[in-house]
């Protein structure tokens, strides 16, 4: 049967319901809910790295560069190229790489988007 206005009841209900959106980014930041295992900005624990370069070889976005430093070959991560696939974290034999929950990856200087 054709009864126009079925949406009126729904609209009235919505009027008294909790807002579906949150006032991001200025207020209600505590309501941003991220589950365990979220893939955000890379965190790198330099002391655990053994310089095997596996992360560099799997990275599909070429976001990892290997540099020489006092301990040998170590990766640096250019976050602005990263696609957050977490493949590097998966292959790392010593779990030196982990994905944090930081999702606001915006910076004014390029240097802030590099993890070493």
């Amino acid at each position: 049967m054709k009864v126009p206005g079925r949406l009126v009841a729904e609209a009235l209900k919505s009027l008294f319901r909790r807002r579906a959106t949150i006032l991001y980014p200025y207020r209600e930041l505590d309501k941003v809910h991220l589950p365990e295992g979220f893939r955000g900005r890379i965190e790198f624990d330099r002391s655990k790295c053994i310089g095997c370069q596996l992360c560099f070889r799997v990275c599909p976005a070429k976001a990892i560069e290997i540099v020489d430093d006092e301990k040998g070959k170590r990766p640096i991560f250019y976050i602005y190229r990263c696609i957050y696939c977490a493949q590097c974290a998966e292959v790392c034999p010593t779990k030196a790489i982990s994905m944090s929950k930081i999702f606001e990856n915006i910076a004014l200087r390029k240097e802030d988007m590099v993890v070493r």
């Binding site: 589950p35 295992g37 893939r39 696609i83 696939c85």
Partner: peptide, 11 residues
């Protein structure tokens, strides 16, 4: 997001 770790590109 809960199951795969990301909303859109699930990987």
């Amino acid at each position: 997001e809960l199951i795969t770790g990301n909303r859109v590109t699930t990987a």
